[in-house]
């Protein structure tokens, strides 16, 4: 079984994230980046399938990313956790790509890997957080997709998923090959072990350009984006209001505040 896990390198959410003022794209160089936390759950889920070992032919896990130079760090982290090999789609023409172009390029990359049984992704990136790329990938690859999966069972030919929807929890079945995006409820991602960190140094990472994938550079990037950011405004910091220490009447004072603001 061949599994591709999509991993994204994102600006650290605890840092002061910002935009490039020249073109309103996410600043990916001025802020430290790391593997999007939500993608760790997808990596872990792939490794759990390896650990379960019920595919007699063995399970191969490929961590794939698209992004500028630093994005290979996301692949590296996945390799340290236990993925077998990596793919980094790297091309200057990709700068400013929208979700559609991203999905199109990743679809081409999955196609180039070939004979992939399962594509695993996180539920969202922690930077753009649109949650649209997996479903778009399903359209481009013409594969079934199950999103927001909180429990996954994989057999040699199909997946059974518990999808945690807004109004109901659904059990969904799909034949392989398929795309599954997982939530942060599905598992507890492992930390890379020292052994894993050392082993990762020897694991192969391929770097592919758009030409390698047969994708026209004119179809991606900022100029080809079908949605445009017109303006970016830093939200004013919220100012701190009154903070009181409870001396037995804290609840009453809070209720008075609520009443003054007409919530009661």
């Amino acid at each position: 079984m061949k599994i591709v896990v999509l991993v994204k390198h994102v600006p650290d959410a605890t840092a002061d994230r910002t935009f490039d003022p020249s073109d309103n794209t996410t600043d990916r160089t001025g802020v430290d980046g790391l593997l999007s936390e939500l993608d760790e759950y997808a990596v872990e889920e792939a490794l759990k399938i390896v650990d379960a070992g019920h595919d007699s032919g063995g399970v191969e896990v490929i961590a794939m990313t698209m992004g500028p130079d630093g994005a290979s760090d996301a692949v590296k982290k996945a390799l340290q956790m236990g993925a077998d090999s990596g793919v980094h789609v790297l091309d200057d023409a990709l700068h400013g790509s929208d979700a559609l172009a991203t999905a199109r390029v990743l679809a081409a990359a999955v196609g180039t890997v070939g004979e992939v049984d399962l594509v695993l992704t996180g539920m969202a990136s922690t930077d753009g957080s649109m949650s649209v790329v997996p479903a778009m990938l399903a359209e481009y690859l013409d594969l079934p997709h199950v999103g927001f999966v909180g429990e996954l069972t994989v057999s040699e030919s199909s997946v059974t998923c518990r999808r945690d929807g807004d109004v109901a929890s659904q059990t969904v079945e799909a034949a392989l090959p398929a795309i599954v995006s997982v939530t942060d409820q599905i598992n507890e991602p492992r930390y890379p072990s020292f052994k894993g960190i050392m082993a990762a140094k020897k694991k192969p990472v391929q770097t592919w350009s758009l030409a390698d994938l047969g994708v026209d550079a004119g179809a991606v990037g900022l100029d080809a984006a079908l949605s445009v950011v017109r303006e970016v405004v830093k939200r004013p910091e919220r100012s701190q209001g009154e903070v009181v220490t409870d001396e037995g009447d804290g609840g009453v004072r809070l209720a008075e505040f609520l009443a003054a603001r007409k919530f009661v």
Binding site: G241, G250, R253, A255, E256
Partner: peptide, 28 residues
């Protein structure tokens, strides 16, 4: 959380919340 709060109470929620609830019910 206090840095962004319009109103904050430093204390134990297990005593403060029931007091708010009782006061809200009384006012309603």
């Amino acid at each position: 959380i206090f840095a962004m709060a319009d109103f904050g109470v430093v204390g134990d929620l297990h005593t403060i919340l029931p007091q708010v609830t009782a006061e809200v019910r009384k006012r309603k």
